[in-house]
Amino acid sequence: MMSYAARLGAVFALSAVFHTATAAEFDYYLLAASWQPGFCKTKPGKPECANLAGSYAASNLVVHGLWPNNYDGAHPFYCGVSKEQIALDKPATWCSMANYGASSSTLSNLAYYMPGIQSCLDKHEWYKHGACDGRSADAYWNQTTQLVSRLGATGFSSFLRSKIGLTVSRSQLLNAFNNSFGPNSSAAMSLQCGRVNGVSYLTEVWINLNPATINQFPAAAALLTDGAISGTCPSSGIMIARP
């Protein structure tokens, strides 16, 4: 089997653009940020979970995706994407999806903030969500990584790091978000958990963002607090996993 390094190098070597983004109508963005140690507790066989210790993803929220969403729940998917690529959009065949035109520098930076690129998660995310953004793959991913980088410098992320290996309550996490972003800002955020062997692991943090002010993130003005967003974490006993 081709190693991750060899596969990534092959992707970088390809320069042909197989798909051009098609703008869709949408109301807001959802930034899906993964707590990778928790994700890896629920999906331990993933390539990106093999060497997590010591990486940026071991103690920071990382990129899952940036999703154009609508208030009515009719979110745009696969905008202008061929049936062939949609048919390949399954975890087992993500790496068989066509190169989508991101530059080598963009992919190199993305690999730092998105360990899931080792499973070709970036291809799935681009074709399902990014293609509806209307911008180039470089612009889309560079903004996404910038958002996650800024998220890592917030008090909320510091709180998560301080609780690695411990359990917290949902209210503690919501309060930490409000303390970091401003009163009632947690209305823009939801917590996603996965349960394994009776333990609820924090796996993702979803944050709704206003497209008009997104570049101000992490300022409160960038948050969108009236979008539909729901979580899956219990009220207590949420484990902040260590790698």
Results as ranks from 00 to 15, higher is better:
residue 58 A to E: 13
residue 10 A to P: 04
residue 21 A to C: 12
residue 11 V to A: 06
residue 140 Y to V: 10
residue 41 K to R: 15
residue 21 A to L: 13
residue 100 Y to V: 08
residue 149 S to H: 12
residue 98 A to Q: 11
residue 199 V to G: 02
residue 128 K to D: 00
residue 72 D to F: 10
residue 243 P to N: 06
residue 120 C to Q: 06
residue 40 C to D: 02
residue 230 S to C: 04
residue 41 K to A: 15
residue 104 S to P: 05
residue 171 S to T: 09
residue 190 S to W: 13
residue 213 T to K: 15
residue 166 L to M: 07
residue 197 N to E: 13
residue 5 A to S: 14
residue 36 Q to P: 04
residue 57 A to I: 02
residue 177 F to P: 00
residue 118 Q to C: 07
residue 230 S to I: 08
residue 114 M to A: 10
residue 100 Y to R: 08
residue 186 S to V: 10
residue 201 Y to V: 00
residue 3 S to D: 09
residue 74 A to E: 12
residue 74 A to K: 14
residue 113 Y to A: 04
residue 76 P to Y: 09
residue 27 D to V: 05
residue 170 R to W: 03
residue 167 T to Q: 05
residue 115 P to K: 00
residue 14 L to Y: 03
residue 144 T to V: 13
residue 192 Q to F: 05
residue 103 S to D: 10
residue 147 L to H: 05
residue 131 A to V: 05
residue 193 C to H: 01
residue 210 N to D: 15
residue 82 S to F: 07
residue 217 F to E: 00
residue 136 S to H: 12
residue 203 T to L: 14
residue 150 R to Q: 13
residue 49 C to G: 02
residue 113 Y to F: 14
residue 160 L to I: 02
residue 4 Y to F: 15
residue 206 W to R: 15
residue 7 R to P: 03
residue 109 N to A: 10
residue 110 L to G: 01
residue 108 S to M: 10
residue 42 T to M: 09
residue 146 Q to D: 14
residue 18 F to D: 14
residue 224 L to I: 08
residue 154 T to D: 03
residue 21 A to E: 11
residue 7 R to S: 06
residue 111 A to Y: 08
residue 197 N to F: 09
residue 19 H to V: 10
residue 145 T to H: 04
residue 155 G to E: 03
residue 88 L to I: 08
residue 12 F to R: 12
residue 200 S to F: 06
residue 29 Y to C: 02
residue 18 F to E: 15
residue 98 A to L: 12
residue 4 Y to T: 14
